[in-house]
Write a protein that binds this DNA or RNA. Structure first.
Length: 540
RNA sequence: CGGGCUGUAGCUCAGCUUGGUAGAGCGCUGCGUUCGGGACGCAGAGGUCGCAAGUUCAAAUCUUGUCAGCCCGACCA
């Protein structure tokens, strides 16, 4: 997740002022800022370097930086989410929160710290999380005698606390007190929180040591109801991903190996990124009675019998922002779907002197008010005027890199012509002059078109990258190092043979899609009979 | 936890082999010319060379120790 030193330095800057002295490697590989490499001058200039085709992971890092979304912090593996990035997360929260409320859930907040013994209660859960937990062992610091501090030996905790990697255990313990009768059920709770998983390799938004998420936890009287809840929330996620994020997803069930520790069934939405790697964008778990038994969540049913409850949990995280970036962005930076854009429209005033400035600003303010009075997707349109004292080109490129869907320019010439210059971020090119009289009435439509266009483009890419494979040879060919890869639908039966082959190919089973047809086939790894295809892909 | 590497200006780095006034690009500040697709010129500000000890008349440079970080592997939303 750190910017690699190579990329930050040599690749971005002209190391050799005299082109004749440049090593030819550097020339060929385009190690030049803004592609000013003299040998590549014919190539269109892009705001992000390297391009997606040249070096996808590095491109991703550069987009995060150029779009001003986040930066690395002084704490290893943790990022600072900057205002523009956080505003995107806030929009994600706002939409999801409304959807959770609409399905009957309420927000609550549980402790950051979990007694270690809680984690120990569910055996598989221990297995799954123990290795990556941050542990709190002391509650006081004292001088170490050398000008520094140390945890006070006298302040050692009797039982260590772990920083929550997820809250099933502590919420379960709480629910155990809340539930006595079938009349107390269901319990439908959501929590917006931060969690910590001490990952060794981190990447901005996609995998950081601390991340922000939402975790829903529910308790039900019956298995059917809990299963329905699990599916319902997966549907909520899928709906959100597709309609708000414009990110096409596939709903499916995880295999045993990919299941949440302690769950009976794990469902996920899977998205395909532009480098043809899959991203798990959200998960929903049917926990059966496993956690209820571990946490003693019991209730008396109508007949007066004591029963274990059925629980679920489901979550999405700031990882969605990573998915958003990799789904829509291009070689000029971020492209935001209008429904999530912190600013859907930025107006750039163009003026050269104070006299012009006064006139232009007045027109900009009026335009802003008219636009903001319009609605898109049942919300007032979000408009900003950028009147910072910067050169026009710089400013314009900043907003392009930040992914604002519509950039409007308004200068003396436009005012004279009664026009506004409009640039759609999702379309190549400089933009068009639109009559001032039309811009306000058509703006909601324009945003809707952008939203749809981004979705369509992403979906087309996925369709192009999707294939059905029925032989191991073809499978291996599809996932060789040089092959672009993608989503492979294959018959399979979970087995050690398969696991070994997948590991060799750096490939994973993403899920067994719900909408896949039931058809008889043979596992491409073992030849055993199978009736469903699974989706295989390299993944984040 | 194994293997490789790096700590010098806000950022990215050069300088170290062969010890002798602390460097570049970008960024930042000011002034001027520019300005509707990423401007240019001039003038500035900015550093206990990760930390500690040692060798030396003299250490960014050599030696030892120490701390931190990065990359590649095994694990993961």
């Amino acid at each position: 997740m750190r910017f690699s030193p190579v990329a930050e330095s040599t690749r971005m800057r002209p190391l050799w002022k005299n082109p004749k002295k440049m090593p030819c490697n550097a020339l060929r590989r385009g190690y030049f800022w803004n592609n000013r490499n003299p040998l590549l001058m014919s190539k269109p200039k892009t705001a992000i370097s390297p391009t997606r085709a040249e070096n996808y992971p590095e491109w991703y890092q550069q987009v995060v930086k150029a779009a001003d979304l986040a930066e690395n912090s002084d704490v290893r593996g943790c990022m600072v989410i900057k205002p523009w990035g956080y505003a995107i997360w806030e929009n994600i929260q706002r939409h999801l929160d409304a959807m959770f409320k609409a399905t009957g859930h309420e927000n609550a907040y549980f402790p950051l710290f979990i007694p270690m013994s809680f984690l120990e209660k569910e055996a598989e859960h221990v297995e799954g999380f123990a290795k990556e937990c941050a542990v709190v062992t002391h509650h006081r610091l004292e001088p170490d005698g050398q000008g520094g501090l140390q945890p006070a030996p006298s302040a050692k905790l009797e039982e260590p606390l772990i920083v929550r990697p997820t809250s099933e255990t502590i919420i379960g313990a709480t629910f155990a007190r809340w539930v006595q009768s079938y009349r107390d059920l269901p319990i439908l709770i959501n929590q917006w929180a931060n969690v910590v998983r001490w990952e060794l390799r981190t990447r901005m938004f996609l995998r950081t040591t601390e991340f922000l998420w939402q975790e829903g936890h529910t308790v039900h009287a019956t298995e059917e109801e809990a299963r329905a809840e699990t599916k319902q929330m997966l549907d909520v996620y899928a709906d959100f991903a597709e309609s708000v994020m414009a990110m096409p997803v596939i709903k499916g069930e995880k295999t045993a190996g990919e299941r949440f520790p302690g769950a009976v069934a794990t469902y996920s939405i899977e998205a395909l990124m532009q480098d043809r790697k899959a991203l798990q964008a959200g998960t929903s778990h049917f926990l059966g009675q496993n956690f209820a038994k571990a946490q003693e969540i019991k209730f008396q049913n109508v007949e007066g019998e004591l029963q274990y409850a059925w629980t679920t949990s489901w979550g999405v995280s700031t990882r969605l922002v990573g998915g958003l970036i990799m789904t829509h962005s291009d070689d000029d930076g971020l492209r935001l779907p209008p429904r999530l854009a912190p600013a859907q429209i930025v107006i750039l005033p163009v003026h050269r002197n104070d006299e012009e400035r006064a006139i232009v600003m007045q027109h900009c303010e009026t335009l802003k008010l008219e636009l903001a009075a319009q609605q898109y997707a049942h919300e007032p349109i979000r408009v900003r005027i950028d009147d910072r004292d910067l050169r026009g080109g710089d400013k314009r490129w900043q907003w392009i890199k930040r992914g604002v869907p519509l950039i409007l320019e308004l200068g003396p010439r436009d005012i004279a012509d009664e026009k506004v210059f409009v640039k759609r971020r999702d379309i190549e090119g400089k933009g068009d002059a639109v009559p001032r009289s039309e811009i306000v009435s058509t703006v909601a439509n324009r945003l809707a078109e952008i939203q749809q266009a981004l979705f369509d483009r992403a979906k087309a890419l996925r369709t192009e990258a999707t294939i059905e494979i029925d032989t191991l040879d073809k499978f291996e060919e599809f996932f060789t190092e040089d092959s672009p890869g993608g989503l492979a639908y294959c018959h399979f039966v979970d087995s050690p043979t398969m696991e070994a082959k997948l590991k060799e190919l750096k490939c994973t089973v993403r899920c067994v899609p719900f909408d896949g047809p039931i058809e008889s086939g043979k596992c491409i790894f073992t030849g055993e009979p199978s009736d469903r295809r699974g989706i295989f892909a390299r993944a984040y």
